[in-house]
Write a protein that binds this DNA or RNA. Structure first.
Length: 479
DNA sequence: ATGTAC
């Protein structure tokens, strides 16, 4: 099927002339769900000059140049399209000392209490296209965030410490004043699409690593999924557009109009890397500020509660890392780093003996997972990477068209949501996504990572202000 | 993903 060759359990390759084979990680059920567009794009990525290796994760779906769910490693080039438009998009998990029983009245979850918590969060955190109307950063604070001089975090809970960008390298100087102003108001805003804030309960514990990390059964936790908002998009767009113009001028051909790349040692490559790192700093700070507001609201509803942060991990970035004894720019787009115990990159960190937490969001109303990398051949082959979530199985448009209110409500179950109208979030219904349990099975059985804990949502906050959900717009317009 | 897109 599709010219794939099985090389191990849940491991497949496609041979490409003159290049390393493309690796696919999937169980049989998930393999059947991988779209033709993913195979086509994966070939374009591996055939991009300078790209050494490509790994496709089981949640992969068709994206912009490169599939979402892709690891692309290169010794010589950096590619904005292989990082993605939402630079630094990722996950953060807040731990509490609350137990699900603290939320129960007469054996049932006290919905009014959860609703009060969600309302408090909604009051403090703008959704969708909205930005902050208060607590705006000054331009100098914003640039301190970009340059890694300002962060509200303990660096140990971050996948990467703030990147320090020297004053000698210009960042964001090509962006308009309006874009910068918008960014100043966006620190602590959720955005739209698959971004969410969830109140969750730890449903299953799979290993004693959980206890070391402060996770226990029935514990209440809160998860934030967001990125660099408009800023990351502007950087990606600028570099793809200007590089394409340059390629056209010089007569350099390309396989995909968004498949742009720069030599890592060229001024352009260095400039993009600096701006990508600035956007990573910005995205992590965005989640840090949101987490602060989530924690303040948990404290309001549950005075005296104790809270801490487990980890913050990105699934859209490019990092310079050593693999197989050589240094690669590892682009992870819709893929998450999963370093196993005693990995050299964890030397000196608190995660050295266990591996670091990998936070994988489920779709609306379904489980999320905390994972950890396993020291294995498969983990090494994937550049110590796994998936980033469930992955779409249906376009937003199609989801809006075919999913009924009844199906949507059944899929959501008794999980509380902020949206009052199912139409404003129907494109995010779990029926439009792959089965997260099958995705997890794919990477676990392939030996890449193991489950630490399974989390179940109680309440979900998502953008319900979307003008973009096709059915919503059509209905409003009434053509 | 994104005040959508040449």
């Amino acid at each position: 099927m599709n010219g794939l060759k099985k090389i191990g359990t849940n491991f497949y390759i496609e041979e490409i002339k003159g290049k390393k084979p493309i690796k696919y990680i999937a169980n049989e059920k998930i393999l059947e769900q991988i779209e033709e567009g993913v195979y086509r794009q994966a070939r374009n990525v591996i055939l991009t000059p300078g790209v050494d290796d490509v790994v496709i994760t089981p949640d992969a779906h068709h994206g912009y140049f490169c599939p979402i769910g892709c690891v692309a490693a290169s010794k010589t080039i950096i590619s904005p399209g292989a990082v993605g438009v939402d630079i630094g998009c990722g996950m953060r998990l807040i731990l509490t000392n609350l137990n699900v029983h603290d939320l129960r009245t007469n054996g049932e979850i006290n919905r009014a209490q959860v609703r009060a918590l969600m309302d408090g969060i909604l009051h403090d955190i703008p959704l969708g296209e909205k930005v902050r109307s208060f607590d705006t950063k000054t331009q100098s604070e914003l640039f301190d965030i970009f340059r890694g001089r300002r962060s509200s975090d303990d660096p140990e809970i971050r996948e990467h410490r703030p990147f320090r960008i020297s004053k000698d390298i210009p960042v964001m100087e090509h962006l308009s004043g309006d874009v910068i102003k918008r960014a100043m108001k966006s620190v602590g805003s959720l955005g739209g699409g698959n971004h969410f804030i969830e109140i969750q309960v730890v449903e299953e514990i799979h290993t004693d690593i959980a206890e070391k990390w402060g996770l226990r059964k029935d514990q209440i936790v809160a998860m934030v999924h967001s990125g660099s908002r408009n800023l990351g998009y502007q950087i990606a767009d600028y570099w793809v557009t200007t590089t394409r113009k340059k390629f056209d001028r010089l007569g350099i051909t390309y396989l995909d109009r968004d498949g742009m790349y720069m030599g890592v040692d060229t001024p352009e490559g260095q400039h993009y890397i600096a701006e990508m790192r600035s956007a990573l700093n910005f995205a992590v700070e965005n989640r840090a500020v949101m987490a602060k507001y989530v924690m303040q609201n948990i404290e309001k509803v549950f005075p005296g509660v104790k809270m801490s942060l487990l980890y913050d991990v990105c699934h859209n970035n490019a990092m310079l890392e050593e693999h197989f004894g050589e240094r690669f720019w590892v682009h992870r787009k819709g893929a998450t780093r999963a370093l196993p115990p005693r990995h050299p990159l964890l030397k000196g960190s608190r995660w050295f003996n266990t591996g670091h937490p990998v936070i994988l969001p489920g779709s609306m109303g379904t489980a999320s997972y905390i994972m950890v990398g396993v020291d294995s051949e498969g983990n090494r082959l994937s550049y110590s990477s796994i998936n980033h979530g469930a992955g779409r199985v249906m376009s937003r448009k199609r989801a809006t068209k075919i999913i009924t209110q009844e199906q949507f409500e059944r899929a959501l179950g008794n999980v509380l949501m902020n949206a009052r109208n199912y139409r404003s979030v129907v494109d995010e219904c779990s029926l439009a996504y792959k089965d997260i349990d099958e995705i997890i099975d794919s990477v676990v059985v392939a030996g890449l990572a193991q489950v630490v804990a399974k989390l179940k949502p109680i309440g979900v906050i998502k953008d319900d202000t979307s003008h973009r959900a096709p059915g919503w717009r059509r209905r409003k317009k009434k053509r």
